[in-house]
Computed example of a mutant assay.
Amino acid sequence: MAHPVQLLVIDPQNDFCDLPTAWQPPHPLTGARLAPALPVAGAHADMQRLAAWISTQGAAIDAITITLDTHQRHDIAHPNFWCNAQGAEVAPFTPITASQVRAGTYRPRHANSLPDVLAYLDALEQQGRYTHMVWPVHCEIGHWGHNIHASVAAACGAWQIQHQRAVTHILKGMNPATEHYSALQAEVPDATDAHTQLNTHLLAALDSAQVLLVAGEASSHCVRATTEHLVQHLPRQRPERIVLLTDCMSPVTGFEAQHTAFLAEMQARGVQLACSSQIRL
């Protein structure tokens, strides 16, 4: 079924939003507030703008797809997977290269995984898209941080009632051996795991759009990787039908240059850039 106007929301999750204290509930076991694990500066306001836009323009939106970064505690991008030469856990926001692992600066905690880890890092670096990064433990499946920002969830719930149609949810990142920024394909696909390979079913669904609006977090990583794969793999191509809602996305702190380069590259390839306030469907 064709859906002429579609909205793709990349990872609008609590762990990526700089939520104010009032939005952070107490942990039921400890009573401590559940703070976002990897907050992106500006993301809370991004998601509030997106929710408001969905609420006002929802009647004209034919389909909504939400992707969810989905990890377990054990993951190649989490600190507990790694240790340094002294055996101590590696700190979040540590980039790790294959040469550092070969030199013994960093190593996986399970020595038996070393060959696979090196093969992964070599493949990742050969692509030239990203250097492997150790992130704080984030978006654990079943945890509060994995949940969708409350404003976006409420707006999408109202849209479902209005249209009598479900939102499509796409989980990505469950394979602990590869990073999965893009909603369409892991950074290094695993030949034995179909969930890491190119998601042709999702591509076909998005390809039915005449207008495909994209929002979410973070513009320096998951929005960027997904949009790049959209431009590369949409069967009917025509990147001009993709619209990036630039006031509904923000970069990870320290990766602002990647955000700027991403927007410039996509615009050069025909993708449209617009603020949500400019889009009236």
Rank of each mutant, 00 (worst) to 15 (best):
A2S: 14
A2E: 11
Q6L: 02
V9M: 11
I10R: 03
D11V: 12
P12S: 09
N14Q: 09
C17I: 01
C17H: 00
D18H: 06
L19K: 05
A22M: 02
Q24I: 08
P25T: 04
P25S: 01
P26F: 02
H27R: 08
T30I: 06
A32E: 13
A35M: 10
A37W: 02
L38R: 00
V40G: 00
A41I: 07
A41R: 10
R49I: 14
A51D: 07
A51I: 03
Q57V: 00
G58H: 04
I61V: 15
T65L: 08
I66E: 02
T67M: 14
T67Y: 07
L68Q: 15
D69R: 01
H71I: 04
H71C: 02
Q72R: 12
I76D: 04
A77H: 03
A77W: 06
H78W: 01
P79A: 08
N80S: 08
W82R: 01
C83T: 10
N84S: 06
Q86P: 09
Q86V: 14
A91Y: 10
F93W: 15
I96D: 04
A98E: 12
S99M: 10
T105L: 02
T105R: 04
R107I: 09
P108Y: 03
H110P: 05
H110D: 11
A111K: 15
A111N: 13
L114Y: 03
L114M: 11
L118I: 11
Y120R: 00
Y120C: 11
E125M: 13
Q127A: 15
R129H: 04
H132L: 05
M133A: 12
V134C: 05
P136L: 01
W144N: 06
W144K: 01
H149G: 06
A154Y: 07
A155Y: 13
A158C: 04
Q160N: 11
Q162H: 10
A166N: 11
T168D: 08
I170Y: 05
L171P: 05
T178I: 09
H180C: 13
Y181I: 09
Y181K: 04
S182I: 12
V188C: 05
P189W: 14
D190S: 13
A194W: 02
H195L: 08
T196F: 02
Q197G: 09
L198Y: 00
T200A: 05
L202D: 08
L202N: 00
A204S: 03
D207M: 07
S208F: 03
A209V: 14
A209P: 01
Q210W: 01
V211S: 00
V211Q: 01
V211D: 00
V214H: 11
E217M: 08
A218T: 09
S219D: 05
V223S: 07
R224L: 15
A225D: 09
A225K: 09
T227Q: 08
E228Q: 15
E228K: 09
H229S: 07
R236W: 10
Q237I: 01
P239L: 12
L244M: 12
D247I: 13
M249I: 02
M249T: 07
P251Y: 00
V252M: 12
G254S: 08
A257V: 13
A257I: 13
H259I: 00
A261F: 03
L263H: 07
A264W: 06
E265S: 13
E265G: 10
E265W: 13
M266E: 10
Q267R: 13
A268D: 15
G270S: 14
V271K: 06
S276R: 06
Q278R: 14
